[in-house]
Design a protein around this nucleic acid. Sequence first.
DNA 1: CTGAAAGCGCTTACAG
DNA 2: CTGAAAGCGCTTACAG
Lengths: 342, 342
Amino acid sequence: MIKPAANKSRASGRITLAMVAAHAGVATMTASRAITQPDMVSQALRDRVDQAVVELGYVPNRAARALASSQSKVIAVLVPSLSNAVFTEVLAGIQDALDADDYQILIGNTRYSDKEEEKLIGTYLQSNPDGMLLSGLSHSPRVQQILTNSRVPVVSMMDMSTDPSQLTVGFSQVQAGYAMTRYLIDKGHKRIGFLAAQLDERTLRRAEGYRQAMQEAGLLDNKLEVMVGEPSTIALGAELLGRMLAQAPDCDAIFCCNDDLAHGAVYQCQRRGISVPAQLAICGFNDLPASAWMNPSLTTVATPRYRIGYEAAKLLRAVIKGEDPANKQIDLGFTLMARESA
Amino acid sequence: MIKPAANKSRASGRITLAMVAAHAGVATMTASRAITQPDMVSQALRDRVDQAVVELGYVPNRAARALASSQSKVIAVLVPSLSNAVFTEVLAGIQDALDADDYQILIGNTRYSDKEEEKLIGTYLQSNPDGMLLSGLSHSPRVQQILTNSRVPVVSMMDMSTDPSQLTVGFSQVQAGYAMTRYLIDKGHKRIGFLAAQLDERTLRRAEGYRQAMQEAGLLDNKLEVMVGEPSTIALGAELLGRMLAQAPDCDAIFCCNDDLAHGAVYQCQRRGISVPAQLAICGFNDLPASAWMNPSLTTVATPRYRIGYEAAKLLRAVIKGEDPANKQIDLGFTLMARESA
DNA sequence: CTGAAAGCGCTTACAG
DNA sequence: CTGAAAGCGCTTACAG
């Protein structure tokens, strides 16, 4: 037998639904239903299809499904960093929340860059995602434009929005920054430095909280602020401690905008023979695993990043399903962890 | 004007290539070429199409492209963990290597589970990936079966394979384990403990190297091994240090299978008043950022994980392009970092 | 419960 | 360089 069309065939060589259907002796439609809506097919035919699937080793073609159904079953997630443990825990929460549904999760790393974010969103939109999970509230005008045009449901993570229509899961970065500063003030510190890097949205909001508290207490002094745009690392924390001490030698406490910087600052103090907290109190932000274990243990703010990811994903899923969630703004709060370092 | 087919339309509502073509007054084919192979279209038409794309805000439909071309432009990456900095750096290398090409990178977290790996590979195969990047050499028989059937190019990362046909980028975990143990032996230690958790493939290979070196020196003693299946954390390192000391009180050095455990062990020693390295030498594996900064700084093995990701992605890309790489096994080596703790 | 037809939005394979 | 036709592998919308 000659198959006339064989030569000019564009077939991929993979097993198709049509082949499964033929093997089972049913129509393609029935094979499709047996797989995606088994309840709508009789037991007998369903069994035959299932068997054909196994015998042929059928793997559904997601692109074809997406094209035909105009439902991608894709959720795109954008985080500013993968080396920051905060965001890998956010991702863990998202994965756990979406584990049962068979969403394909597209993880994008913007590296704290608006340009990268724009590029990634453009790319991901090509996959026609059912929804997106974004880090932060502020995006470039072009991104906002693109997002609006696309009509893709978006949930913002990490901070609380003032716009009640915006779906948001997080906690108030300003309040957390304020709370940590008040804690230091209440401990009697007067010259409280603020050490920051990266200067992303969240860091700036924490700085806002710091300034509010300092202002209220009449302690505000810009000599006490050391803020640089480089990525936060332990090494940078060590370096910036030196800069702070040079700039404000009378500084008696330092609020680091995250634990990485704080770890570096503490280690640097140890090397310089500065006793923490006796001579200098140091605290951080996020409560990374090492913070509870290092010596001295680090006073910091514990943030609910796993739950942020989890709840954000659940919220997005509800919206995708067409539900109108009662609570569009989920505030998960934060916890001040008073330990040895401050 | 009534559009007769409008009601029964299954159109997604998005701008399509056909609309762009109509707007530009060319055939769909020409619009397609103007976008994907601009050199094959005259300047004049190309400009008209480009303009139509902008005016209409056209976003290509990746599913349709994948289906028609049977090229997904997808690369799937499987790592056992995202909370382990080692693998996030591998991912960074992969991203950087693939940045120019417009591959969609699918990141899967197997959580050190064969079942999860199987599930993820099954899911990702539905997207018909152009290639896959896998962590480790050993996979379940079913996974190997599925992979073979799929004919998708695979590059294995993190360790060196003995099978010369297997595309591999990494370094010898056995040799690294051996080297660290020899270092401790050469320093005069006799009772060298081995502390391990997770017990994944790589950890077991490091244990192999440890045992080889201990055996050669006539120092092997299973009382010196504490190995548990739980995930590695600083907290677990702190706990296991206690267990080791209870089991082998005369132990004079401890080789921790990774830096997280080592950090926990060092912190625990500090809390118990055990001086490191004077009373007990401690070393780790991977050289995480904190290791160089903590006090005492940690002796460990620096591993080239960023480059592993980078080179593995480059290798995979070459294979996808049909090249036959001269070097199918890339050994990136490792570096012993002798510091204060051992 | 089952199926024949049409269509999703693109690209391949030709032909001119 | 340009384009009309067919097809990728599924699902939707009907009809029975």
